[in-house]
């Protein structure tokens, strides 16, 4: 057996299929742990982890923090809105200051693409990317693929449609890398203005018509419209978007087969998903959240490395 091929988790692009499989196998064990009455194991008791969030997050940060606490790690939290970053400190200085306080691992979310990669080059600590701008969000992709594997018994050969704002989505890119590595077929669907121009070159199908995409797929991973990243108008109105790309229970019932519905959260109810669809039996959205903790425990366990 071997460990992960990388000392960091910067993106799905630079890890191997074996890495993903190893993370999944370890996550199976942690899933059992978090379903016990006593949910804590002492593995990371001598590891200190800093959660450095330069961008808002509830789910991811909570999930990371829970995972860290269930592994008995010591945790420090940092969010840009309440820190000296507002006073003009650079990213490297901020992180070096945190490191000077003897931190072993850093979970970072940043609005700039490549921020975690930059840190990995300059500092000695394991870096986990918790989302960098519109680039990657590897733990989300891992937990999405893990949830598909759990629900449908395998990822290989499955057809997954990623629907919505692909252009601004780090979840979409990481998902495409992860699913392709695991042997799934991937399709992206959304209004042409929200699809990157050369996305086809990643080996994914492109579809503008929601119904056709849903007819084709086994799993629909629906993404949120990221209004906060859109400086210009990409579609006339949310109402029009939801008319063409919103998924309702009625649409799901009209399909010839059962499909699995996923969403990385937060859901804009009534925009990309109607309430009756989000709460239907198709949806595994809450399973995704549960699996998120197990996946993040697995990643941190495997990255914790050796005492120097």
């Amino acid at each position: 057996m071997s460990g992960l091929s990388q000392p960091h988790l910067l993106g799905i692009k630079n890890i191997t299929r074996d890495d993903i499989e190893l993370i999944f196998k370890t996550a199976d064990n942690f899933k059992e742990v978090i379903n016990r009455t006593i949910k804590k194991v002492p593995s990371l008791r001598d590891v200190t982890i800093a959660n450095v969030f330069f961008e808002n997050s509830t789910r991811t940060r909570l999930s990371f923090e829970l995972a860290q606490k269930r592994l008995s790690a010591d945790v420090v939290n940092f969010s840009a809105s309440t820190s000296s970053v507002k006073k003009g400190e650079t990213l490297l200085d901020t992180v070096n200051n945190i490191l000077a306080m003897k931190v072993d691992m850093i979970v970072i979310r940043h609005a700039s693409v490549g921020a975690p990669h930059f840190l990995a080059k300059h500092i000695k600590a394991n870096i986990i990317n918790a989302g960098d701008g519109t680039h990657e969000h590897p733990t989300q992709a891992l937990l999405d693929a893990y949830s598909i594997r759990e629900k449908l018994k395998a990822v290989k050969g499955k057809k997954v449609a990623i629907i919505g704002d692909i252009l601004h989505s780090r979840v979409a890119l990481s998902n495409i890398f992860a699913l392709k590595k695991l042997g799934a077929e991937v399709l992206v669907c959304g209004p042409p203005t929200l699809l990157p121009k050369y996305i086809g070159q990643l080996g994914v199908k492109v579809e503008w018509n929601l119904l056709k995409a849903l007819e084709w797929c086994d799993v629909a991973n629906v993404l949120r419209i990221q209004l906060e990243r859109q400086q210009i108008k990409y579609f006339p109105s949310l109402r029009e978007y939801s008319l063409y790309y919103g998924i309702t229970k009625k649409i799901l019932d009209s399909l010839k087969k059962e499909i699995v519905l996923m969403h990385p959260g937060p859901i804009n109810r009534g925009v990309e998903l109607s309430s009756d669809a989000a709460d239907s039996h198709h949806s595994i959205i809450l399973d995704q959240v549960e699996n998120g903790v197990a996946i993040r425990m697995a990643v941190m366990y495997l990255l914790a490395g050796t005492v120097s």
Partner: peptide, 9 residues
Amino acid sequence: FRRREIPAK
């Protein structure tokens, strides 16, 4: 744990 090269499976 963390005393060996690779984490135990």
